[in-house]
Design a protein around this nucleic acid. Structure first.
Lengths: 213, 213
DNA sequence: TGTACATCAGTGAACGCGCGTTCACTGATGTAC
DNA sequence: TGTACATCAGTGAACGCGCGTTCACTGATGTAC
């Protein structure tokens, strides 16, 4: 039954991009085929090039959508809270949850695409999208921090985000092993301490390392 | 000129594994072909299956060797220093250097394989090797830390390593952009503060976040 | 030590397979009267 | 509004290509005498 209505064709295109947005995050930018994406959208592969110029073009669009989605969720989570620190804590707790770890297709594209970006050409559009999305996230996080100056805020944002990113990525890489939960918990405890005792490492002048690390 | 000596054949096998150890880290576990590896070793692809049962078997062996190499370098770096904290600082500085970022083929396999591990089956031998290597690294790092108890030491090691890992991985993913250096510097400043002023974020009770983050 | 022969490390053509992409075709959609 | 026809979204076969893997072959190596 070929030739659906123009409206249905537009919906189909949306469905394809949505499926790709999820599948690329789940299996990586090289982990799914055009056939896979089209099947996930309930279509056959032949119609693909009526919607997209190439597989690469879909990856580009799906990646962009993943970053938009992630930014909206992040901002939505922030808007629910009534203080900057509560917002930061909420964001961290969502980011470092086992749900987040177990649902990469619906979660942070910075983590989902990090491995692929390491092997992506610098001029690549995917790389540009990734950088834009990451910078947005860093700015969002920075705006939730209290620091004495802008440079301090920036450093805090870079370090806190690197830790969030690292912990989520490592917990995915080790998923199924007890270490996976351990990593998430340790990072959560340090980034959202409820009691002083949660952060077990006290400030230790001798080692020169800062309180929380 | 086929049929080399048995000794030369053994050397060739070593060369293949060495090339694979480097190439897999540079381009990912799915980023190079059997032809690529054999060419890098100065051979043609046909002889591959005289040395290895499958591409997967080589990946397994090359991955194991990468972890051994990394552990040796880490321990060597530690042995050069005369205090635990000096050793920890030396390790961090090496880990978070631009040399480390720019030479993935010769650097930490935890970072190099993290993206691939996220899509690897839990029972996979590669996964087991990865977990073993990561746990070894965490133990090594823990032994360099001063904490009031074992749980505190473990938490510190998990958090410090997650940050090191996250910063190196993100700096690779953003390589070529100024953000890449910024990330490395911020993580280095927090993990190896030379002066109090290097850590720009002071302890801030209002935010509830710990001193360094 | 020298010779004759079996072994086998490496070669390169060939295999089947899955991939991205193209294309002739179909028949419902959309349009012109 | 109804009819006739052009359009074109989706189908599925087919393409070339690179991949992992196999294999007949070669000729130096290693061994038996």
């Amino acid at each position: 039954m070929p030739r659906v209505s123009r409206k249905q064709a537009d919906l189909n295109r949306e469905t394809i991009v949505d499926a790709a947005t999820r599948l690329f995050r789940e299996r990586g930018l090289h982990g799914i085929s055009v056939v896979d994406v089209m099947a996930a959208a309930g279509l056959t592969h032949g119609g693909f090039y009526g919607h997209f110029e190439s597989r690469e073009a879909l990856a580009q669009e799906a990646s962009g959508r993943a970053f938009e989605q992630a930014a909206q969720r992040w901002l939505g989570r922030v808007a629910e809270q009534d203080s900057k620190d509560a917002a930061r804590r909420a964001v961290v707790e969502t980011y470092l949850s086992s749900e987040s770890r177990d649902n990469p297709g619906d979660s942070c594209p910075v983590v989902a695409f990090a491995g692929d970006m390491c092997h992506e050409a610098a001029e690549s559009g995917l790389r540009q999208t990734y950088l834009l999305g990451l910078n947005n996230l860093l700015d969002s996080l920075g705006s939730l921090l209290d620091a004495e100056d802008e440079a301090g805020k920036r450093q805090q944002a870079l370090v806190q985000y690197s830790l969030m990113f690292g912990a989520l990525m490592l917990s995915r890489a080790t998923r199924g092993d007890p270490l996976s939960d351990e990593i998430l918990e340790a990072a959560r405890a340090v980034l959202t301490p409820s009691k002083q005792s949660d952060v077990r490492a006290e400030f230790s002048i001798p080692t020169g390392s800062p309180a929380c690390l």
